[in-house]
Structure formats: structure tokens, C-alpha cells
């Protein structure tokens, strides 16, 4: 892969919208053209070169492009939004909407991320090593579909409404999650290794969707019905994938764990599942 390095310069007092930091947009351009790409700061337009030192190599195709941001950029939004291929590595914190609506490629954030990470994501892999804010992988307001594919892994904690209106894809949180995880979800898989706050799975419908809770649940909605405690074979497939493909080692200890299966949310006639590891 060709590596392009972006080193942050002085940050403005208001956020920068920089969806141009994407392999799809950068690939095939000259270095000078990349420095001149438009970014938005409030109601003004500036260039990428105003806020980043840009150096390195540029690939012909997005699939061969690696973009490395050499530092924290919590004031920069929409990095990798709508990207389809390639790779972005951010060596620090990042702002809102990182990887929103992306459909391919990989984004790695070595710090924490703000809200709307991977909102309405369609494909690809998005990994946040620190914490993530609210509405991780959620649908934007007014939209009926949240995540429809891809995988988001968060090493730390996540805020409220994670996976709202999720349809497909996979969300993995190694820390705790805030209220309303999986609200309105209708498909997709959520794995929570920390503690899930109240109203998890509220108004979830089903369509094969489930929320697996490995670190306990603060309170389960009364509209989820307990069915059984069992060791589902299908969970082994997922846990092996988390361990082998994503390097999530704590998945290993739950391979043979019993799960309590709850079905709901019957408030909306739902047939979704919440699977909670039985304490051993």
C-alpha cells in the first residue's frame, strides 16, 4: 500500500469537516492537489493543507491507499465518510462521524472517537481502540436504516443509542455501553463484553438480530420474555470469529458458556433476542 501521512497543525476553535480524508478521494491525485482539497470550517471553506502537513505517496487506486494521521484530531469530523476501500489509521482521538456510511476498507482509530462513529455503515471494518461516543453505528435522525453491513469494534466504552435501527452487520464493544443499545434494531449482531445499561434492545423487531451480553445487564425491559438457558452452537461461530479474525481474546472464555435467552421486544411484536451469559 502507498502511505500518505497527514500531520495535524494548529487546530481552529470550531470543528473541521474533512470527508476528503478518504482513500477514494485521495487516490489518483497529485500531492499538490491533495493539499488543495476543500474542507469546511464553520461557514468558510479552507484547504486540507491549511490544517495538515501532507507528505508521502499516493496510490492510483483507493484499494492501495493507506492514510496515516499522525496525531489526535478530535476537532475533525467525517473522516473516511462514505469510503469504499483502502485504509485509514488515526494515531490519536478523532471527531464525530468517522467512517459514517462507509461501505468498504478499514479505519483504525488508536485513541477515542466522538459521536456517530460508523453511522449507517454499509461495509468494511472500523476499529476504535479507545472509547466511542453516542449513536455508534446508528441511523441518522429520520432514517429507517442504521448499519446495514460491516463491523465496528470498540475497545472501550460506548454512549447511548448504539446500533439504533441496525439492520445487518456486527457491533462489538469490549467495555460498557450506555442506555438504548440496539434500540429499534431489526437484524445484525451486537456483542457487549462490558455492562449494558438500561433499555437494551428497546423496540427491537427481530429478523435474526440479537444482542449478546457478556458482562451483565443493568436492567432488562419487561417486554423481553425468558425462554431458556442453553449453549447455542451458533454462538461458537461468532466467538471464534471474534477471537481469530478480530483478536478479541476475552471471547475465548465464553465459547462453552451457557446463555439465558430472552425474546422480544414484544411491545412491538418483536422476535429479537438478548442472550445473557449466565454467571458461572
Amino acid at each position: 500500500m502507498e502511505e500518505l501521512r497527514l500531520t495535524p497543525k494548529d487546530a481552529p476553535t470550531i470543528p473541521i469537516e474533512a470527508e476528503v480524508i478518504s482513500p477514494d478521494i485521495i487516490a489518483g491525485k497529485r500531492l499538490q492537489d491533495v493539499k488543495g482539497l476543500t474542507v469546511y470550517v464553520g461557514n468558510t471553506t479552507r484547504t486540507l493543507g491549511d490544517f495538515f502537513d501532507v507528505e508521502g505517496d499516493i496510490a492510483e487506486k483507493a484499494t492501495d491507499q493507506l492514510i496515516v494521521v499522525e496525531g489526535a484530531i478530535p476537532h475533525v469530523k467525517y473522516i473516511g465518510a462514505e469510503m469504499t476501500a483502502g485504509r485509514i489509521v488515526i494515531k490519536g482521538d478523532v471527531g464525530m462521524h468517522v467512517g459514517a456510511q462507509m461501505s468498504g476498507g478499514e479505519i483504525i482509530v488508536e485513541g477515542s472517537a466522538s459521536d456517530w462513529v460508523g453511522a449507517e455503515m454499509k461495509g468494511g471494518l472500523l476499529r476504535i481502540k479507545g472509547n466511542a461516543g453516542n449513536q455508534l453505528g446508528a441511523a441518522y435522525r429520520g432514517s429507517s436504516d442504521g448499519m446495514t453491513g460491516g463491523c465496528i469494534v470498540v475497545g472501550g466504552d460506548v454512549g447511548i443509542e448504539m446500533g439504533a435501527f441496525m439492520r445487518r452487520g456486527m457491533l462489538i464493544v469490549q467495555g460498557d455501553v450506555g442506555p438504548f443499545a440496539g434500540v429499534h434494531m431489526n437484524g445484525g449482531e451486537i456483542f457487549i463484553f462490558g455492562r449494558a445499561a438500561r433499555r437494551v434492545g428497546a423496540e427491537a423487531k427481530g429478523n435474526g438480530g440479537f444482542i449478546a451480553c457478556f458482562g451483565g445487564v443493568e436492567a432488562l425491559l419487561p417486554t423481553y420474555i425468558y425462554d431458556t438457558t442453553y449453549r447455542p452452537t451458533f454462538m461458537k461461530l461468532y466467538l471464534r470469529q471474534l477471537r481469530d479474525e478480530l483478536g478479541i481474546e476475552e471471547a475465548e472464555k465464553f465459547l462453552d458458556a451457557p446463555f439465558k435467552r430472552y425474546r422480544g421486544d414484544i411491545a412491538v411484536g418483536g422476535n429479537s433476542e438478548i442472550l445473557i451469559v449466565e454467571e458461572q
Binding site: 461495509g123 468494511g124 471494518l125 453491513g149 460491516g150 463491523c151 452487520g169 435474526g208 451458533f234 479474525e245
Partner: peptide, 17 residues
Amino acid sequence: VKMRMNDGWLGRRRYWR
């Protein structure tokens, strides 16, 4: 239950539970 794995990132797999 239809089980959908890997949509949009690894090779898509389908199972039935």
C-alpha cells in the same frame, strides 16, 4: 431464525437456527 454472518466485511455466510 436466519443467521446472517459477515455482511459487508468478510465473505457473507448464511445459516438457519
